[in-house]
Design a protein around this nucleic acid. Sequence first.
DNA 1: ATTTGACTTGTCAATCTTTGACAAAGATAT
DNA 2: ATATCTTTGTCAAAGATTGACAAGTCAAAT
Lengths: 101, 101
Amino acid sequence: MKETFGEYIKLLRTKNGLTLTKLAAQLDLDAANLSKIENGKRDFDEKRLSKLAAIFELSAQELQDEYVSDRLAKHIYEMDCSSELLKVAEEKAAYRRTLKK
Amino acid sequence: MKETFGEYIKLLRTKNGLTLTKLAAQLDLDAANLSKIENGKRDFDEKRLSKLAAIFELSAQELQDEYVSDRLAKHIYEMDCSSELLKVAEEKAAYRRTLKK
DNA sequence: ATTTGACTTGTCAATCTTTGACAAAGATAT
DNA sequence: ATATCTTTGTCAAAGATTGACAAGTCAAAT
């Protein structure tokens, strides 16, 4: 079962023996705010994904996917949405794609 | 294939022979803003769902589902998210539910 | 027991986003 | 034409998010 994006960052950080302060500096962030991100109290800003990928030498695409699925998961969780509703939503998203053409 | 929530409102409105101005008044809204909602340029605010249900005598639960699935669809659409990623997101949402206990 | 370093939490102003309101301009019908 | 309905643009107000800093806890070392 997959972790949250915050937990994912924390794992990366600790596996690489970095402190909050050090990683935060590389991400151009306050250590306090990075802590909140790791603990799910704030969101990681998309504009820092490229820095994160560079620091840990990750595939930009995989990281992006990790990020996007986490954001979506957050929405699904917050909306308290059943699996059936999710299916409907997926169809409606497909419909929206047909509109924008 | 399902319509957007804005289109859904427009359908309800026209089927019942209401003008934007009349429906907007009942929803405590400006007609101009209701127009934007129907045309997908603004979001319908959740706090007005109960009024909408009352006006058209709809099941509150069904309307809520219509609304939630639309919002999620919008997110899915905006994130340009594949069906596989969506599955991952669903799992991650399940994981989040395990955390909050 | 004090210091040090790592992390967490609270707060608040600055910034970004969304909303409500109104004016003005297109449509459409009479 | 006029009248009514709808759409679009703009902008300040309200709301949400972020960055920054202070103050806190905790554990390990000395």
